[in-house]
Write a protein that binds this DNA or RNA. Structure first.
Length: 985
DNA sequence: TAGAAAACGTA
DNA sequence: GTACGTTTTCTAG
């Protein structure tokens, strides 16, 4: 090769995929062979060979090669095992075309180059570099951004579909940096399609901006500490190594040991007849004619070539998971044998709890997953065999697959089972065709197990109390199954076990995170099989073989997690927390969620109208006062009006430097006599009530029950509280009269009353017990007003005739104590100077020295152990309490002080809930527990059972800590009944 | 379209 | 000062 020569390098593998998707689907030869991509490929080659001068490239090639990926494993997999791990199977119609395209290349008389262990991109990198060094030029026929790093003054790219040459300027135009920075840019952004991790939160725009500022990746990572944006800085520091790894993954290897020398790529004239024979075989008549004209060959005289078509695995394209065969059809006997039993199994019985837990963790961490071993059960006989095997094992992981995340609305689409590691099966029940019919519903696919038969078989397994059913977030599966008439009897929940063991260490106990952590395995992500966003498929639309792998894997993972986590409960002394506070509550909550609460649509609708009218009036006033219309809901625009246009004194600024327009700030401005802020506060209140409650709640009323079914999370708080969502029924307004009206829409059904029972001052009582404070215990024993008593102790004011303001301050201090008080926070709450707040705290600690001792002891315990405990032994972990950052440390200290108090109270109400159903039934009461709001339980009771119900409820709640803990203070429960929640509370 | 920020509802 | 979840706006992708 010499100066003036021009090498064309066609990225064959990328072209195949692009042509397949860009060209009309279902282009087939007369015998049905799909040839759309081959057709596009041949037309492109012919055009480049004949008319390259007329394209945007503007030169005629002297050298030419087509490069392909060889196999799925390359040297990059050594750097990072998961490189391109999320590539999915190519479409079925594309598979035979991989081989045809190589044959086409040869028919054109062009070198067809691939190399084991390297990607096409590496070979292209090597040849383009060689051409440049030889004094020639190169054009890479591809538009893949991964190749842009190769662009130089002598190497450019060419996008055939857009007839556009991509040189230095075009790269800069698209990415904001030159080709020499592309490697660093890709290292920062990562690439989801190739599973290159990058740095979270950084996309091409941010990456370009950072690189232009710092020059290159190494400098950027070194000086990451200088970056202003908190999250961005932290991510760059935390994921620096990941960025470097990503750089190694995206950097192409210009030293790839290519086999053919550059000169072997020199272009010869086409062998017309050979090419025509191939084109005729492909039935590309117009291209055949053009080639015949150009080469002067007689097409009619040429016989079509014999073309080998490979449909199977051998013809598969690159970038496939080698284990990505289809699942399905195998019977239990055909399934591969499970791994030989763990030799430790026989000995396990004699091991100490922690030795067992450690051994299980170690074994799980190195275990292999084999999706090909999973079975798709298509008939009852096979299902019966699997149920028999589960029965034999005594333990079975079970997972439902449905078409909704809302367990009350979900239809059962299928379920999976696993009775031994690596042995899992999926049973499709209601998968539908991907295509919509006229009703917008696909037809039911064939060869699925009949629903009623499957349920009756499942009942024999799941309702048998001698079988342990293991689930991950099993409350969901229990609710779905209960709606299908199946009551799961004995169960374990890996999510709850993890929550008990590692609450606070890992804030999230989802299966994917647990699998990653304990099994070193990344499960198939739902979005990878279903897509995401608006066009995400529901599970019933996912092809059964794909669904099968996904669902069976979930059951396999769940069983493995159970084997790792369950022994830790014993080893770490947390069995009773799990058995008394978590496991039984899952069943209780399932029933509460299923029951739901009646909500009166008319009441909400009336309120919505009222709120809308009032808000509209206020809105007009606000715009009048402001002198122009603006979006009141936008704090930015509001700040602009208040502090810019009107020149009011800005108070505090938010974290991001904006003027704060919080209610607090607006109240302060209102107090100074400005009319506008008051109106804003009023407007915000009304729009909040309307959008969050009166408008949103009706949408949660289920058509078939007329009731609202919230979903409780058992494992999402650090302290042991529950949380409620969709809708959140733990934050229904009560403080303002307007807000309270929303509670009137929560009603009892005809002939019933709502009974509300709430603990009085439970957290202060818990504190009095835990910190062992004599005055507090006495005050509670005597039934005194605790805030008045605190004020009296602190300020020497008699309780009788105490001014409201004095009591209010003491109340704020009491709450402050529970929250791990700081002078800053107390001052802000009370609207007083920090020094004054500090004086209050000082006085408080002088009067209650035991509280200070308790707080110090709690902090010391947390620092030493990394966790704190409730009176029932529940742990909340605070690993960051040892942080060298004073702010982080102080925050963790306050949280660690609060957690045992809030958590013990949460444990108490959990215990009450666990006992409540039996207690009511035992007293022949039919009242049903509906809701829990941290210190309050709401029931629905028949009118004539209200009094005895309240008696039982009060009895259970007040004695809930017993006998595990005998509190040094009495618990007091206030209860009332009425037609709606507002009046009952 | 997804996620962050700000605001605000509850205990 | 603790613990949550939802809504709206706005920005970056």
């Amino acid at each position: 090769m010499k100066k003036g020569d021009h090498l064309f390098l066609v990225d064959g593998s990328a072209y195949i995929f692009r042509a397949f998707h860009a060209l009309p689907p279902l282009t087939r030869k007369s015998d049905g062979l799909p040839i759309g991509a081959v057709s596009g490929f041949c037309n492109m080659l012919w055009k480049l060979l004949r008319d390259a001068r007329d394209t945007d490239v503007g030169v005629t090639p002297t050298h030419f090669a087509v490069i392909f990926d060889h196999s799925s494993k390359t040297f990059r997999n050594e750097l990072f095992a998961d490189y391109k791990a999320n590539r999915s199977e190519p479409p079925e119609d594309l598979i035979p075309q991989f081989g045809l395209i190589r044959q086409a290349t040869r028919a054109f008389g062009l070198p067809c180059i691939e190399l084991e262990g390297y990607e096409a991109d590496d070979i292209i990198a090597a040849y383009s570099r060689m051409a440049e060094q030889a004094g020639g030029e190169a054009t890479i026929v591809s538009s893949d951004k991964d190749l842009m790093q190769l662009v130089t003054d002598h190497v450019s790219m060419y996008d055939t579909m857009k007839d556009r040459q991509i040189g230095r300027d075009e790269v800069i135009e698209k990415f904001g940096v030159g080709p020499e920075m592309m490697i660093d840019l890709q290292a920062l952004c990562g690439d989801p399609t190739d599973n290159v991790p990058g740095v979270p939160g950084i996309g091409p725009k941010t990456a370009a901006q950072l690189l232009l500022e710092y020059g290159d990746l190494d400098t950027l990572l070194e000086r990451a500490g200088e970056i202003k944006q908190n999250k961005r800085r932290e991510n760059l520091i935390e994921f620096a190594d990941q960025a470097r790894l990503s750089r190694d993954l995206v950097r192409l290897d210009v030293d790839t040991p290519v086999e053919l020398p550059l000169d072997a790529l020199a272009l010869d004239d086409q062998d017309g007849p050979k090419l025509i024979a191939f084109l005729k075989a492909m039935e590309f008549s117009s291209l055949t004619r053009r080639v015949a004209e150009a080469t002067g060959a007689d097409a009619a005289a040429i016989e079509p070539a014999h073309v080998e078509v490979e449909w199977g695995a051998a013809a598969r394209g690159p970038d496939l998971d080698p284990g990505a065969g289809t699942v399905g059809g195998e019977s239990a006997e055909d399934a591969p044998r499970a791994a030989p039993p763990d030799p430790a199994d026989a000995e396990e019985g004699t091991w100490s709890p922690s030795a067992l837990a450690n051994a299980r963790a170690e074994a799980a961490a190195t275990a292999k997953f084999d999706a090909d071993a999973y079975v798709c059960i298509r008939d009852l006989e096979t299902l019966d065999e699997w149920i028999a095997m589960a029965r034999e094992a005594g333990v079975v992981a079970f997972d439902t697959e449905t078409d909704s995340l809302d367990a009350m609305a979900a239809n059962l689409v299928g379920f999976s089972l696993s009775h031994a590691e690596g042995r899992a099966a999926y049973v499709p029940l209601l998968h539908r065709d991907g295509e919509d019919d006229l009703l917008g519903e696909g037809g039911l696919l064939p060869d699925q197990v009949a629903m009623d038969e499957a349920l009756s078989r499942l009942r024999t397994l799941l309702e048998d109390p001698s079988i342990l059913v293991v689930g991950q977030n099993i409350k969901y599966d229990m609710l779905v199954m209960a709606r299908h008439g199946v009551e799961i009897a004995g169960f374990d929940d890996t999510m709850l076990i993890s929550y008990v063991l590692d609450g606070g260490n890992n804030s999230h106990h989802g299966m994917d995170a647990l699998a990653e952590r304990w099994l070193g395995h990344t499960p198939i992500a739902y979005k990878d099989i279903a897509g995401s966003g608006k066009k995400a498929l529901t599970f019933d639309r996912i092809a059964i073989d794909v669904a099968s792998r996904y669902a069976a894997e979930d059951a396999d993972i769940t069983l493995r997690l159970w084997r790792v986590l369950k022994p830790r409960l014993v080893a770490e002394g947390l069995v009773s927390v799990y058995e008394r506070l978590e496991r039984p509550l899952a069943a209780v909550l399932t029933r509460m969620e299923r029951r739901g609460v009646a909500v009166d649509r008319q009441i909400l609708s009336r309120l919505s109208g009222e709120f809308a009218q009032k808000a509209a009036g206020i809105e007009a006033e606000i715009h009048e006062l402001a002198g122009e219309p603006f979006n009141i809901g936008s704090p930015r625009q509001l700040g602009e009006i208040l502090f810019g246009k009107m020149g009011l004194p800005g108070g505090t600024r938010t974290k991001s430097g904006q003027w704060s327009t919080s209610a607090q700030v607006l109240e302060d401005l209102a107090a100074e006599g400005h009319p506008l802020p008051r109106r804003i506060v009023d407007w915000r209140q009304l729009t909040k009530l309307k959008s969050t409650y009166t408008d949103a709640l009706p949408g949660y009323i289920m058509a078939d029950t007329g009731r609202v079914h919230t979903s409780y999370s058992l494992a999402s708080t650090s302290t042991g509280r529950l949380s409620s969502s969709e809708p959140n029924l733990q934050n229904i307004p009560i403080r303002t009269t307007e807000g309270r009206r929303i509670r009137t829409a929560f009603v009892a059904e005809k002939g019933h009353k709502l009974v509300s029972a709430d603990y009085s001052q439970i957290e202060l009582r818990v504190l009095a017990h835990m910190a062992d404070i004599a005055q507090l215990k006495q005050a509670f024993a005597d039934g005194l007003d605790i805030h008045a008593m605190t004020a009296s102790e602190m300020f020497g004011v008699p309780i009788k005739g105490m001014p409201g303001e004095v009591r209010r301050r003491a109340k704020a201090i009491n709450f402050g104590i529970i929250y791990g008080i700081s002078a800053f926070g107390l001052a802000r709450n009370l609207g007083i100077e920090r020094s004054e707040a500090a004086d209050y705290i000082k006085t408080y600690f002088e009067r209650f020295p035991g509280i200070r001792d308790y707080m110090d002891a709690t902090k010391a315990f947390a620092r030493e152990h990394g966790y704190v405990e409730t009176v029932f032994g529940r742990r909340a972990h605070y690993p960051e309490i040892r942080s060298s950052n004073p702010q982080v440390r102080a925050f963790n200290e306050r949280a660690a002080i609060n957690a045992p108090i809030q958590g013990s109270a949460a444990d108490i109400i959990r215990r009450a809930m666990v006992r409540m159903e039996d207690a009511l039934a035992h007293s022949h009461l039919s009242a049903k527990m509906l809701l829990q709001v941290h210190d309050e339980l709401i029931f629905e009771a028949p009118d004539d059972e209200v009094e005895p119900t309240i008696a039982v409820v009060r009895e259970i709640m007040e004695n809930a800590a017993m006998p595990a803990v005998s509190l040094a203070v009495p618990l007091q429960v206030d209860a009332a009944a009425a037609d709606n929640w507002d009046e009952a509370h």
